[in-house]
Design a protein around this nucleic acid. Structure first.
Ligand SMILES: [Mn+2]
Ligand SMILES: [Mn+2]
Ligand SMILES: [Mn+2]
Ligand SMILES: [Mn+2]
Lengths: 146, 146
DNA sequence: CGGCAAGTGTAGACGTGGCTACACTTTCCG
DNA sequence: CGGAAAGTGTAGCCACGTCTACACTTGCCG
């Protein structure tokens, strides 16, 4: 059963916990992107319609509608047939958090020398895996070095 | 159809491309983690068995076996019944790339002040979204500031 | 004000990545 | 050397996130 302790690897439970948390982060990523995008659309144009959301995400409108249904199920959004999508207070809170985190991640990447478009691109994925501790460190770093 | 240009948002095609790339990165993340882990297990103990892989990832052995089957389908791994898992040359190349990228991401996070365990934790997810351009910037930053 | 284009919604398919349950093979030790 | 424990494999379930196809509603404009 391989009971020899393996030197350079983390312990099994530690590694399992890390992978597990990464999986969780992944599963919330989509809701976070939708919330952020819906908030942006509402702020800049006053409405967030499924087709606009779909076009901006690069998916079919059917996919967008199904995901919006999940957001509603989870208490993050509301919508009535043919009437556009809105955020609940919880949805707005999520969007605000996600938006500020997104900005911080882009700023940190830029600060360590990542080119603008690469920073924007990579931040779209990275943001969902940045913990509060890491976010705080980014903040401190930017305050000091900025 | 909302043909008013929206000021603060990226253009629709730009944003769609970014989200699309993030989705692609996400879909390769699992294969990357498996390849890296299999290489580590082979290096440190000479064998990589489905149950060990499953325990370290924190999933059931059935899940691990199914994913290993996908790796085999994609030409990254080989295995014969009851005999453990090995990497193809392509699999080893992927593992090497992933491992060095993982290390760089952890080092960068540490360098900007992220606590050790948070860096290890967050890197597990972040690594899959770091482009070559960003990686190169991390490298330069560490060479300079390290 | 009527009709058509655009938008919306629903149904059904598919691949992935989880799980449990159960059957089979290997290994190891008494 | 035989049997129990550990490991392996398979089947079948589920939720998610994607798609295409088709039907229905809205809203605008001629
Ligand atoms: Mn994102
Ligand atoms: Mn974002
Ligand atoms: Mn990882
Ligand atoms: Mn890794």
């Amino acid at each position: 059963m391989s009971r020899v302790p393996i030197p350079d690897l983390p312990t099994e439970p530690t590694q399992a916990r890390r992978f597990g948390k990464a999986r969780t982060a992944q599963s919330t990523a989509l809701a976070e992107d939708y919330a952020e995008l819906i908030a942006d659309l509402l702020a800049s144009s006053g409405e967030a319609r499924p087709t606009d959301i779909a076009r901006r995400l690069g998916v079919s409108h059917a996919t967008a509608i199904k995901t919006i249904a999940r957001l509603k199920r989870e208490g993050l959004a509301t919508s009535r047939p043919y009437r556009g999508v809105f955020l609940t207070p919880e949805g707005e809170a999520l969007a605000a958090r996600v938006k500020s985190r997104h900005r911080l991640v882009v700023d940190l990447l830029r600060a360590v020398g990542v080119p603008a478009e690469a920073a924007e691109q990579d931040a779209e994925g990275i943001e969902h895996h940045v913990s509060d501790l890491t976010l705080a460190a980014f903040s401190r770093y930017l305050a000091k070095a900025g």
